[in-house]
């Protein structure tokens, strides 16, 4: 197979990444925005005393999560457990990372999903890109992320967004396309504008599906937590990463369990929002 010289794909990509460095001002802007978002989240979440946070989240879960006692109880005990293991501050950092990645994903993903649902050609173009984003090993995103955003939480957020955004786009697109044609016809027949149709009919009808996408995005962002810690993102993932490096199974599992608890809480809350109330 020496007939063909090896294609310098790596070289091309490196060149492309180098070239992208010219757009540093854009990346600086993005970095500043993410830092700001993270700051607000960590500060506002971190300033709340643990017990108020625990009780408040329990109550909120109970009210908005369809009044399930078991779920509320799990939130109460789970958060108390994390605090008890002294992972509270790490948990807040991880939560901030996950929430900001999710917010950015939703902010970008939902409009793309909507756009895609209205345009078949666009759908055909975007779908393989989404496949690519999801199947590419998540570690690979760390490299350009570091190149553009340095070390720390910000590149972690960026890598998480790239890895976690596809479900939101996919399911927004799917949700809107699934709205029954008769309901769409009804809204057209009464003289809705495109905007009215979107806001008053399509998005409400697609809500459950879109929420399922956001739920998946949150879960994927959480799964990036440990990976992001390799480029300096602090939080629970960092604890796991350290434990791996020092061969401390106990600490590793402690932090790991904390991540699992956080994941279950976030998962159940978003699922409840998606399915409860109309």
């Amino acid at each position: 197979m020496d007939l063909f010289p090896s294609m310098p794909l790596a070289q091309w990509i490196d060149d492309f990444v180098d070239w992208l460095n010219n757009a540093e001002f854009i990346f600086d802007g993005i970095e500043a925005f993410i830092s700001f978002l993270l700051l607000i989240l960590t500060e506002s979440l971190g300033v709340i005393p643990e017990w108020i946070f625990i009780i408040a989240l329990t109550v909120v879960t109970f009210i908005f999560g369809g009044r399930k006692t078991g779920l509320a109880l799990f939130v109460l005990i789970g958060l108390f457990f994390i605090d008890n293991l002294n992972y509270w501050d790490d948990m807040i950092l991880t939560l901030s990372l996950v929430l900001s990645a999710t917010m950015i994903s939703v902010l970008i993903g939902v409009p793309i999903g909507i756009w895609m649902s209205k345009n078949n050609i666009l759908e055909q173009i975007i779908k393989p890109i989404l496949d690519f984003m999801q199947t590419m090993p998540a570690f690979v995103y760390l490299i350009p992320a570091v190149a553009f955003f340095g070390i720390g939480m910000e590149p972690g957020v960026v890598a998480s967004v790239i890895f976690a955004m596809p479900p939101t786009i996919r399911l927004t697109n799917l949700g809107i396309r699934q709205v029954s044609s008769e309901v769409i016809e009804a809204s057209d027949a009464f003289g809705s504008t495109a905007g009215q149709k979107l806001w008053k009919v399509q998005l409400p009808m697609a809500r459950t599906t879109i929420m399922a996408g956001i739920n998946q995005t949150i879960m994927l962002a959480l799964s990036m937590v440990v990976i992001a810690s390799m480029i300096g993102a602090s939080g629970l993932g960092e604890q796991v990463y350290y434990a791996v490096g020092r061969n401390q199974a106990g600490q590793g599992f402690e932090a790991g369990i904390a991540i699992v608890i956080l994941a279950i809480i976030l998962d159940r809350i978003t699922q409840s929002i998606g399915s409860s109330s109309r």
Binding site: S180, E182, V183, A189, V201, M205
Partner: peptide, 13 residues
Amino acid sequence: MSMVFQKFGLFPF
């Protein structure tokens, strides 16, 4: 003009 549909076309939410 208004329209009435076979499968009602109501907004379930």
